[in-house]
Amino acid sequence: MSGYAVFLRGINVGGINIRMADLRDALTSCGFADVKTLLASGNVVLTSEQGAAAVKQQIEECLRTSFGYDAWVVVLAAGRVAELVEACPYPEDDRETHTYITLASDAAMLDELDAAGAALEGSEQKRLGPEALAWLAPAGGTLDSPFSKISSKARFKATTTTRNLRTLIKVRDAAAALS
């Protein structure tokens, strides 16, 4: 059994509301073990005998069937979440800025997002790997930041999701407990 972190895109915003207990029950009924949800924004750790690609496919099918929406997730091995947190050069907590990590299931789409962000004046970002890009936003102005506006475009919807660094640290710690 391998431990995974699963990041759901777009739940509990925009009319797609899923209770975490219902999410946990659905994933358990779809054959996953040790399912634990974190926060109410679609962060899950679980174990499976399958590889990450198969876990992604099975979870998306499970969510579509159980909750009736077009589900997209990013799945990372538990150890990879720890590596990404460690690789992030930005602070966990800062009064002036917030640190975010955009996770992707498609490296080419993240390449495109990375290039678009790099072209922005004053943008501060760092590629952490083929599946992750760390970036900063001013405190209190995340949704209005130029990078946030680019990353929220529809073309990235099916392949990316963003979490703040504090959330990734909580997911890392929960995923470590699976081992």
Rank of each mutant, 00 (worst) to 15 (best):
P89D: 05
P89M: 06
P89F: 11
P89H: 03
Y90I: 00
Y90P: 08
P91V: 00
P91N: 03
P91Y: 11
P91R: 08
E92F: 14
E92A: 15
E92T: 13
D93I: 15
D94A: 11
R95D: 14
E96A: 15
T97E: 04
T97Q: 04
H98P: 01
H98V: 14
H98A: 12
H98D: 04
T99G: 07
Y100F: 15
Y100W: 15
I101E: 05
I101F: 03
T102R: 06
T102G: 08
T102Q: 07
L103S: 03
L103T: 04
A104D: 03
A104S: 15
A104Y: 00
S105H: 07
S105Q: 01
D106C: 09
D106F: 08
D106S: 04
D106L: 07
A107W: 11
A107R: 09
A107H: 13
A108H: 12
A108T: 13
A108L: 12
M109H: 14
M109Q: 15
M109Y: 04
L110C: 06
L110D: 05
D111F: 10
D111G: 04
D111N: 02
D111W: 00
E112L: 13
E112G: 00
E112Q: 10
E112I: 04
L113R: 02
L113W: 05
D114K: 10
A115T: 04
A115M: 03
A116S: 01
A116W: 06
A116V: 02
G117W: 01
G117D: 07
G117A: 05
A118W: 03
A118Q: 13
A119T: 00
A119N: 00
A119H: 04
A119S: 06
L120P: 02
E121N: 12
E124R: 14
E124K: 13
E124H: 13
E124S: 14
E124L: 13
Q125C: 07
Q125M: 10
Q125H: 10
K126G: 13
K126W: 13
K126M: 14
K126P: 12
K126E: 15
R127S: 09
R127C: 10
R127Y: 06
L128S: 06
G129L: 05
G129K: 05
G129N: 08
G129P: 04
P130C: 11
E131C: 11
A132Q: 09
A132P: 08
L133D: 08
L133C: 07
A134Q: 00
W135Y: 15
W135S: 11
L136G: 02
L136F: 11
L136V: 01
L136A: 01
A137N: 11
A137C: 07
A137H: 06
P138A: 14
P138V: 08
A139P: 07
A139E: 01
A139Q: 07
A139N: 01
G140C: 01
G141P: 07
G141Y: 01
T142P: 10
T142L: 01
T142I: 05
L143P: 00
L143H: 10
L143Q: 06
D144R: 14
P146E: 06
P146C: 12
S148V: 05
S148Q: 08
K149R: 13
K149E: 10
K149M: 09
K149N: 07
K149G: 02
K149F: 06
I150D: 00
I150R: 07
S151L: 08
S152Q: 15
S152V: 09
S152F: 13
